[in-house]
Measured scan of single mutants.
Amino acid sequence: VSKLITEALSVSQERVGMSLVALKKALAAAGYDVEKNNSRIKLSLKSLVNKGILVQTRGTGASGSFKLS
């Protein structure tokens, strides 16, 4: 899941990052079952932020906008 998230964010052209909703849409378009794996998406977002791979530009927790650091 982390690999899919970083790939989706690297393609994004948004300056402020990608919102959680837009990220879920991009994952669904890539063929990932978002409804079934919603908790996995949130956990991997939090772990990527803690590792310093992603930066959360808006919001708290697993909601808001994210971009690559």
Rank of each mutant, 00 (worst) to 15 (best):
I53T: 10
S19F: 11
I53Y: 07
E35I: 09
V16C: 15
V11F: 08
R40G: 04
M18N: 13
A8P: 00
L45M: 03
Q56P: 12
V55I: 10
Y32S: 08
L23P: 00
A8D: 00
L9I: 14
K24Q: 05
L23G: 00
A26K: 14
I53D: 06
S44M: 11
A28V: 09
S2H: 02
S63E: 15
V21W: 07
L54F: 12
S2E: 15
I41V: 05
T57W: 05
S63Q: 14
Y32T: 07
V49S: 03
V21R: 15
S47C: 14
L9Q: 01
I53W: 11
S63K: 12
G52H: 05
K24I: 01
G31Y: 11
I5L: 06
V55P: 07
E7C: 02
I53A: 09
S12D: 13
G64V: 15
N50S: 14
F66A: 13
L23V: 10
K51L: 05
L20I: 12
K67N: 10
I5M: 04
Q13M: 04
S10E: 03
S65E: 15
A22C: 12
S10H: 05
Q13R: 10
K24R: 07
I41N: 02
S39Y: 02
K25S: 06
L20T: 04
G64K: 13
V16F: 06
N37V: 07
A26E: 05
A8R: 04
N37S: 12
S63I: 11
L27H: 00
A62N: 14
R58K: 15
N38H: 03
Y32I: 13
I41S: 01
R40Y: 05
L27N: 00
Q13V: 04
G61H: 12
S10P: 00
D33A: 14
I5R: 00
K51S: 07
K67R: 12
R40M: 06
S69P: 09
E14W: 01
L68E: 09
Q56A: 15
L45T: 01
V34S: 06
R15V: 03
R58C: 09
G64M: 15
T60G: 12
A29E: 14
L27C: 03
A29V: 06
L9F: 11
D33V: 13
A26D: 00
G31W: 03
T57V: 11
K25W: 01
N50Q: 14
S39D: 12
K3M: 01
S2L: 03
V11R: 12
T60P: 13
T60W: 09
L68V: 06
L27V: 06
S2A: 03
R58D: 13
K51M: 05
A26N: 03
L43E: 15
E7M: 01
K25T: 04
L54M: 14
G31N: 04
G59F: 10
V21F: 08
A22I: 01
S47Q: 13
S10Y: 05
A28N: 07
K36M: 05
K51E: 13
L9C: 03
S44C: 15
S2T: 08
K3W: 01
A62D: 13
M18I: 04
V1I: 13
A29I: 05
N37D: 03
K67C: 10
K24P: 00
G59C: 12
A22F: 03
I53L: 11
G59D: 13
G61F: 07
G52N: 06
K67Y: 07
A62G: 15
S19Q: 07
S65F: 08
S63N: 09
L45R: 00
V11C: 10
G59Q: 10
S10M: 07
S47H: 08
L43G: 11
A8K: 03
K36P: 01
T57A: 13
A8Y: 04
K42M: 15
T57F: 08
V49Y: 08
F66D: 14
S65Y: 12
Q13Y: 06
K24T: 05
S65G: 13
A28M: 10
L20E: 11
K3G: 02
S47K: 07
L27E: 00
K67S: 13
A30C: 08
K67F: 14
V34H: 03
I5E: 00
K42L: 14
I41E: 00
Q13E: 11
R15M: 04
I5W: 02
E7R: 13
G52F: 07
K67T: 07
S19I: 10
N37A: 15
K25R: 08
A29H: 06
S65P: 10
T60K: 13
E7V: 00
T6R: 11
M18K: 15
A26C: 08
K25C: 01
N38M: 14
I53N: 13
S47G: 02
V55H: 10
L23M: 06
S39C: 01
L45W: 09
T60M: 14
N37M: 02
L68W: 09
A26I: 07
G17P: 02
K24E: 04
A62T: 12
M18E: 09
K36S: 05
A22G: 03
V49M: 14
V49R: 05
L54K: 10
K3V: 03
E35P: 04
A8S: 03
E7F: 00
A26W: 07
N38V: 14
G17F: 02
M18F: 02
K67P: 06
G17Q: 10
Y32R: 11
A22N: 05
T6A: 02
G17L: 02
I41G: 03
T60V: 12
L23A: 03
K51Y: 00
S2Q: 04
Y32N: 09
G61Q: 10
S69I: 08
E7L: 00
I53M: 11
L27K: 00
V1T: 04
G59T: 11
L27I: 09
K25N: 07
I41A: 03
S65Q: 14
V11G: 09
V55T: 14
A26R: 03
A8Q: 01
R58L: 10
A30F: 04
R40Q: 13
T57P: 11
L43V: 01
L23H: 00
L23Y: 00
S10R: 08
G61S: 11
E35K: 14
S12Q: 12
G64W: 10
R15T: 14
E7S: 02
S39P: 03
A62P: 12
A62R: 10
A26T: 09
S2F: 04
T60E: 12
V21G: 14
T6S: 07
R58I: 10
T57Q: 12
N38D: 01
V1S: 02
L23R: 00
G61M: 06
Q13P: 03
G52R: 03
L43R: 14
V21N: 15
S12N: 06
S39L: 04
T6N: 12
G61C: 12
G17A: 11
L45I: 03
V34Y: 02
G17R: 12
K25A: 06
A29Y: 05
E7T: 04
T60R: 08
A28C: 07
E14K: 03
T57E: 15
S19Y: 04
T6H: 11
V49W: 02
G17E: 13
V21A: 14
R40L: 10
V21T: 15
A62V: 10
L9K: 07
S2P: 02
V11N: 08
V55R: 15
L48Y: 01
E35F: 05
K42W: 03
L20V: 11
T60Y: 06
E14D: 05
A8V: 09
D33I: 09
S19R: 06
G59P: 08
K67D: 07
K3S: 05
K67V: 09
A8F: 06
N50E: 13
G61W: 07
Q13I: 05
L27M: 07
F66W: 11
S69G: 06
E14N: 02
V16D: 15
G52I: 04
A29P: 02
K24M: 05
S10F: 01
I53C: 08
S47A: 11
V16K: 07
E14R: 01
R40H: 10
T6M: 09
A28R: 13
G61P: 08
L20M: 12
G17Y: 03
E7A: 00
G52S: 08
A62E: 15
L48E: 01
A22T: 05
K42F: 03
L54R: 15
K42Y: 08
R15C: 06
S69V: 10
F66L: 10
V34E: 04
S47R: 10
L48W: 03
S47E: 15
V11E: 09
K46T: 06
A8N: 02
N37F: 07
L9T: 13
K24G: 02
S47P: 02
K25L: 00
S69D: 07
S19V: 09
S69K: 12
E14Y: 01
Y32Q: 09
D33M: 15
L48V: 02
R40N: 07
A28I: 11
K46H: 04
T6P: 00
K36F: 01
V21M: 12
G61N: 14
S39T: 13
V21C: 07
M18V: 04
L9V: 05
S19P: 04
R15W: 01
S47V: 05
N38Q: 11
T57C: 12
E7Y: 01
K3N: 08
A22V: 04
S19E: 02
K36T: 04
A30K: 12
